[in-house]
């Protein structure tokens, strides 16, 4: 009887011990979060291209470790994540935080440069030029200034200001990591002045004389045929209607023909502009841009150099 009591008591104690140590309400599991591991975790997501998740993890890092020396880098990386995600406004917001709170830190210059890059990528060339010029003025003879000059050259290229771009690339200092690339670009971009452009005004005039001729001028023969046939049919139908005393029908057809005719001229001018943009864009695509934004994400502190090809 006594043995049974002892066994029961032992079993009861065991149960209590098991419940006691497993009950999370009593002893909740705790995670010890270290700043380094949190930062690396965020970087892993960034490396995988999951930028949204990386931003969340970097923000968690900043929230839990606001005094950590890597906070500014984290903010900078948030900006890069947004840039890679094409969220330009959010990127600028994050980067401006660095500029406002720590204007003297080395990351402020990076933030300025990346702000310019965000405008460049968004196609806002004037704003991009302003920021690149600012970096060149404030961080003279540094890697940042060299990069800013290189990007400034590219903004001129994007605007098809070939000679301006060439002169900027030519002024690249020998100590710049972009020196070789810039020398090559300075030569190459001058060929842009000899691109076989077509004249939009001439295309419009040709289309006004004979519908479709403006499209044929830029080798768009199917479009030319469509424009010619449609205009021809509507003009013929309108004349026939008037000849047969169907004034209302003739009026409607003439009204529609005004649209076809005007549209044909607009279209000729438009496709000529498109043609010119295409040859400029193809020309630019043939040049190598050695700037790689992801090198700002490296922890080494310096801006590196990478070879990137645009397909």
């Amino acid at each position: 009887m006594e043995k049974i009591k002892i066994k029961g008591l032992v079993t009861l104690i065991c149960c209590v011990v098991v419940i006691f140590f497993n009950e999370s309400a009593v002893f909740p599991k705790q995670i010890v979060l270290e700043s380094n591991s949190q930062f690396s975790f965020a970087r892993e997501y960034m490396a995988k291209g999951e930028y949204g998740r990386a931003v969340e993890e970097f923000e968690r890092f900043i929230h839990f470790f606001p005094e950590d020396p890597e906070v500014l880098r984290a903010r900078c990386l948030i900006g890069i994540c947004y840039l890679n995600d094409h969220k330009y406004d959010a990127a600028r917001e994050s980067l401006s935080e660095i500029i406002k709170t720590n204007p003297d830190s080395p990351f402020a210059g990076r933030a300025l440069l990346l702000t310019g890059e965000s405008y460049y990528q968004e196609g806002l060339i004037r704003e991009a030029e302003y920021y690149f010029q600012l970096v060149m003025d404030e961080y003279d003879n540094s890697d940042l200034a060299y990069t800013a000059r290189y990007r400034l050259g590219w903004t001129k290229l994007k605007e098809s200001r070939w000679r301006d771009a060439s002169s900027i690339f030519e002024k690249t200092e020998y100590s710049s990591p972009y020196y070789d690339s810039s020398r090559l670009l300075a030569q190459e971009c001058l060929y842009g002045e000899a691109l076989p452009y077509k004249t939009p005004a001439l295309a419009g005039s040709l289309a006004a004389v004979i519908p479709g001729l403006g499209h044929a001028y830029v080798s768009r023969y199917k479009d030319a045929a469509v424009a010619f046939v449609l205009n021809g049919l509507f003009i013929w139908a309108a004349i026939e209607s008037f000849d047969h005393d169907h004034d209302v029908l003739g009026g409607i057809l003439s009204f529609l023909e005004v649209g076809w005719y005007s549209g044909n001229i607009y279209s000729a001018v438009n496709v000529t502009h498109k043609y010119n943009r295409k040859i400029e864009s193809d020309f630019r695509r043939g040049m190598k841009d050695q700037f790689d934004i992801n090198l700002f994400a490296t922890g080494k502190g310096n801006i590196g150099l990478a070879l990137t090809y645009r397909f």
């Binding site: 499209h215 768009r220 023969y221 199917k222 479009d223 045929a225 469509v226 424009a227 449609l230 649209g259 076809w260 005007s262 549209g263 044909n264 607009y266 279209s267 438009n270 496709v271 498109k274 043609y275 295409k278």
Partner: peptide, 19 residues
């Protein structure tokens, strides 16, 4: 809007060569 709609209808045939 009318003119640009007409432009779109006209330039559709050869657009694949550029866009």
């Amino acid at each position: 809007g009318w003119i640009m709609t007409v432009d779109r209808l006209i330039h559709e045939a050869d657009e694949a060569s550029i866009s």
